[in-house]
């Protein structure tokens, strides 16, 4: 019987067609094109590669992309926890609507989010107007980038923590209270440690999404050289100048960062799953 040693025998039909097609499709659509990035960088000269990824504007973009993503993820971790907490534990009119709304940043096309946010935060925008009076400018500054990244990262933070909060055993908190702990104590010493893995995962996923984000950010950032250029934009501009090698070089840096994050997230989720099972 063909492939007896590869898969455990099963009487269900269609294994080889299904697997064969899947692997073929995966290779053609995902693996081959992705490997093109790696291969292209090997054909370019090292000098060009190094020069590109260390050029001042590119380095400035790293600072902006990484910095803003990190800050946005942190903000989302805090407010994501808040939103999840309120959704799980409290009731108020319209809660189901609000719960559905949390997914909006994930469902909304990035370009739409981009222009909407820009319109809101320019000096004539509804919010920008108010902030301008206090001397704060959001649109076309790194702050604007931050706002956009908070927007798109929120669902990941909330949805990571929500199921853990829902599954939280009320008995644990009752036990703490019966032992004399105040609410705050109970939260910090009992509840929060249980939430930490999920929060970390939510943070990491927010961060990963923010790092590669383009559409939501590219409008509100203003794309001013050395100041508000995000890294994906620089890939775009290199491409428009037909500097494929340069674009690929920057892309490789981003891919390495993304995959490292993906690995970290998978490890985190694997660990928290083991933790949950041990309970």
């Amino acid at each position: 019987m063909a492939g007896r040693s590869f898969k455990h025998f099963s009487i269900l039909p269609g294994f080889w067609p299904a697997l064969g097609f899947s692997v073929l499709y995966l290779s053609l659509i995902v693996l081959a094109p992705l490997s093109a990035v790696v291969l292209k960088t090997t054909t370019a000269s090292w000098a060009h590669f190094w020069g590109t990824i260390t050029s001042p504007s590119v380095v400035a973009s790293y600072r902006l992309s990484f910095g803003a993503s990190l800050a946005a993820a942190a903000i989302n971790a805090v407010f994501g926890l808040l939103v999840a907490w309120v959704l799980v534990r409290y009731s108020f009119p319209g809660k189901r609507l609000v719960d559905a709304l949390v997914d909006l940043p994930f469902a909304l096309p990035t370009a739409v989010a981009g222009i909407a946010l820009t319109t809101l935060y320019t000096e004539h925008g509804w919010i920008g107007r108010l902030l301008a009076r206090v001397g704060i400018r959001v649109a076309f500054t790194p702050l604007g980038v931050l706002v956009a990244l908070v927007f798109i990262g929120l669902p990941f933070a909330v949805r990571s923590v929500q199921p853990v909060l829902e599954d939280l055993d009320a008995e644990i908190e009752d036990a703490a209270a019966s032992l004399g702990a105040s609410r705050w104590r109970t939260f910090t010493r009992v509840v929060f440690p249980l939430l930490r893995p999920a929060l970390l995962t939510g943070f990491a996923m927010s961060f990963a999404r923010a790092l590669g984000e383009y559409g939501s950010v590219v409008f509100i950032s203003g794309n001013m050289p050395m100041r508000t250029e995000i890294t994906p934009l620089l890939i775009m501009t290199r491409l428009e100048q037909y500097d494929y090698a340069g674009a690929t070089a920057i892309a490789l840096v981003m891919l390495v960062a993304s995959f490292a994050l993906l690995l970290a997230i998978n490890l985190l989720q694997w660990r928290s799953r083991r933790y949950a099972e041990a309970r």
Binding site: F6, K7, H8, S10, L12, F15, L19, S22, V23, L26, V30, L31, P33, L34, A36, V37, T110, A208, L211, G212, E213, Y214, G215, P232, L233, I235, M236, L239, A247, T248, A251, M254, L255, S258, F259, L261, L262, N266
Partner: peptide, 28 residues
Amino acid sequence: KFQFPGKNLLITLIDLPFAVSPVISGLI
């Protein structure tokens, strides 16, 4: 529905496009 080696690898590879920035998705 089947057991075979490399299953987890396959699942991870399927998730790859999620981890790739949109601009890079076009670049490739």
